[in-house]
Design a protein around this nucleic acid. Structure first.
Lengths: 211, 211
DNA sequence: CCGAATCCGGCATGATACTG
DNA sequence: CAGTATCATGCCGGATTCGG
């Protein structure tokens, strides 16, 4: 039985044929910060059901968007990660995040709140071309730490702390969300104590277009 | 009964809560070139089924992404159109088109081929910032004509011919698709006669990053 | 414990028929 | 033209089970 398709000669429709099924894009979003194991994916996707996750991973693998890899011993566990084709989806996620974030209010009780998701929102907020912002930084939020590297054209977030970061930025998840959103200025967040930066805030303000 | 949701505090997930159901994004894509009637949407979405189209239009209306409008007499027919929030989705479609187009081969027999869809691919291909490309142009393909207006930051496609365009570009749909894709150069297309431009091709080459 | 496969009730989808 | 009603089918979500 053939996969269902929109059957249109159109880049958008074809993208949605590959990515538009329920959970597909959300799974890929969770792979943006690096490889993940099956169980990690399950934990980050409340409600998915193991069978459907398994099926989606197979479809995305068959489409060349993700690969299954086996970590070297002693870890020896299998992980899923984006292929270069999958990495090419980053602009799609940035656009979705920039559109969706302003419509997201305060976290509701039943909502799953995850530090990785706000890291992705920050990645989407990044504006290339800021001068003098290059370097490695650290973001701490919701009990997690991320290391991010800025170059003039690119930003790269990874899970885990940074060594000798140029600056460390720390705030809770809703504050960072409002910041990524443009609802809250950097100045106001620093002044109220909702956000702390150790090191020089100037390059960060430039890289994220914050005032 | 509550709509189903990914229940995550994340801009991407929230966007997909509003847009991720089957057909939603494809319907919105078909509104990118201007308002459409119910039947026009049905014709452009083979396989949707009238009930589902009706339901999706209601959902998108309730979410503030589209509006229902009644044309002034004597037309007096109701059309659906993007709200400003819906217009804000353009970057999402551009990103999806740019990702999906390279994976789209030649049109297959069962695929629905539509001139509007290639116009959207051209819109997605547009690179802002080209100097000296401002003006009104016409695109003719697949039996349809489009008028597009270029400013330094923006391009705007509309259905229908242009008056006194600065240039007219004409080719069939697969050729334009390959061009939007980068698979075919402007030079090669002109030389082979697959594409014709009346007027000056230089500003078009600049605006679309074509060689 | 990790990484699934299987089964099942319920809802979403797709096609057709029908109505204001 | 612009939808609603109905119905068969298949997809989704949840629980359970099973092999490494």
């Amino acid at each position: 039985m053939a996969k269902r398709s929109y059957n249109q000669y159109c880049g958008v429709a074809h993208a949605l044929d590959l990515l538009g099924e329920r959970w597909s894009l959300v799974i890929l979003r969770n792979l943006l910060l690096g490889p993940k194991r099956y169980t990690d994916l399950l934990d980050g996707l409340p409600g998915i059901g193991t069978g459907l996750l398994s099926q989606r991973l197979k479809e995305l693998d068959a489409a060349g968007i993700i690969t299954r890899a086996t970590l070297p011993p002693p870890a020896a566990s299998t992980v899923y990660q984006l292929t270069p084709d999958g990495e090419g989806l980053r602009p799609v996620f940035h656009a979705l995040s920039r559109w969706g974030l302003p419509r997201l209010g305060a976290p509701e009780p039943e909502q799953h709140v995850d530090p990785e998701l706000v890291a992705i929102a920050m990645e989407a907020r990044f504006r290339p071309g800021a001068a003098g912002a290059d370097g490695v930084y650290e973001l701490r939020t919701g009990g997690a730490a991320f290391r991010f590297t800025i170059t003039p054209e690119r930003i790269d977030f990874r899970v885990g702390p940074a060594e000798a970061p140029r600056a460390v930025i720390e705030a809770d998840i809703p504050v960072l969300t409002e910041l990524a959103n443009g609802t809250l200025t950097l100045g106001a967040a620093l002044e109220s104590g909702a956000l702390a930066i150790t090191g020089d805030p100037t390059p960060l303000a430039a890289a994220f277009g914050l005032s």
